[in-house]
């Protein structure tokens, strides 16, 4: 297990390095003087000279990459072009909002999707299965930004049950939670469908296995057979899907953050791209990549921990 973990960490390091290289190249692939691109045409010669020196733009490209890599490894992702604030601080102010949104979105999708998939698999062909099937496909088919707008129009404008914009008053947990409901609903809805379909398919496969028949023959209750035996195995591919799903939710969160005017890393990157604020783009993409790699790694480790067959093959 330790060797497996080391291998995975090594692979993650290579991916991070590749992302760093890609991000670094981004600045140099754009035509024109990077300092003018970043600071704008109104910038004074002194400001351009200061930026050039600060970003080491007057040095060879390889040297610049070494500086960039060294700084990034020390947790220094540079400074915001406009405010001169540390990118790490700016990301720190927003990442909590993004994590809350993504985790809540995936959380409620798991809480609803997995039971729905189980119910559908336990009674295949029943009305529950059919209704779940129709709704799952529907939920998958509707893009999250459309759900966001629909939810906003219905729950905020028409019914006025939930707030439309922002992340709530700092320090007011209930207010922050109420601001989280609609965006989390919007980004999670599609995943309810995905997970329900995935769990149903896995469960149907597992329910036909001989050991399930044996468990039933031993007189175990259907509940114990489903939850204690079938689901434990059927959930494994779903965990992989959930891990990868976080990647999809990062991009869905961008739309939700824009539509609901929530602070977050996705919206920060989106705004920074428009403003050509490259240090923010680089820092934000790096953090998003790191988060995704971490989640996938955790899901793989979880599967290894849950499934003795995977563990023994390591």
């Amino acid at each position: 297990m330790i060797i497996y973990l080391m291998k995975r960490l090594g692979l993650a390091a290579i991916v991070v390095m590749a992302v760093l290289l890609l991000l670094f190249s981004m600045l140099h692939m754009i035509p024109g003087n990077p300092a003018i691109l970043a600071l704008g045409t109104r910038a004074t010669p002194e400001a351009i000279a200061e930026y050039t020196a600060r970003m080491h733009l007057d040095e060879p490209v390889l040297t610049q990459f070494v500086y960039f890599l060294g700084s990034a490894l020390q947790g220094d992702l540079g400074q915001d072009v406009f405010s001169n604030r540390a990118v790490v601080d700016i990301i720190g102010e927003r990442i909590g909002f993004s994590l809350a949104l993504i985790c809540t979105g995936m959380g409620w999708a798991v809480l609803l999707g997995v039971p729905l998939g189980c119910l559908a698999a336990v009674r295949p062909g029943s009305w529950v299965d059919r209704v779940t099937g129709v709704f799952s496909v529907g939920m998958i088919a509707v893009p999250s930004f459309l759900v966001s707008i629909w939810a906003l129009l219905l729950f905020s404008l028409e019914l006025r049950w939930l707030p439309a914009i922002g992340a709530g008053e700092p320090g007011d947990f209930a207010d922050q939670l109420s601001h989280l409901v609609l965006p989390a609903f919007a980004i999670g809805l599609g995943w309810v469908g995905y997970l329900a379909r995935m769990v149903r398919a896995s469960m149907l496969e597992v329910m036909g296995e001989p050991y399930i028949r044996s468990a039933r023959a031993f007189g175990l209750t259907p509940r114990r057979v489903v939850l204690g035996y079938a689901l434990r195995v059927a959930i494994l591919p779903t965990i992989t899907l959930i891990g990868m799903g976080f990647g999809g939710l990062i991009s869905s969160a961008v739309f939700a953050e824009i539509i609901f005017a929530r602070p977050g890393v996705g919206k920060m990157i989106f705004d920074a791209v428009s403003d050509r604020n490259f240090p923010i783009v680089q820092g934000g993409v790096l953090v998003a990549t790191g988060f995704y790699i971490l989640v996938v790694l955790m899901s793989d480790l979880l599967i290894a921990w849950l499934d003795p067959r995977v563990r023994s093959s390591l």
Partner: peptide, 25 residues
């Protein structure tokens, strides 16, 4: 991840979300 756990959690989330309805309006 039982149905009861799910229902309890969902209800809590829903209640917390709906309780301050009208905030900022």
């Amino acid at each position: 991840t039982t149905r009861r756990t799910f229902l309890t959690s969902a209800a809590a989330l829903g209640a917390a979300g709906f309780f301050p309805g009208g905030v900022g309006m």
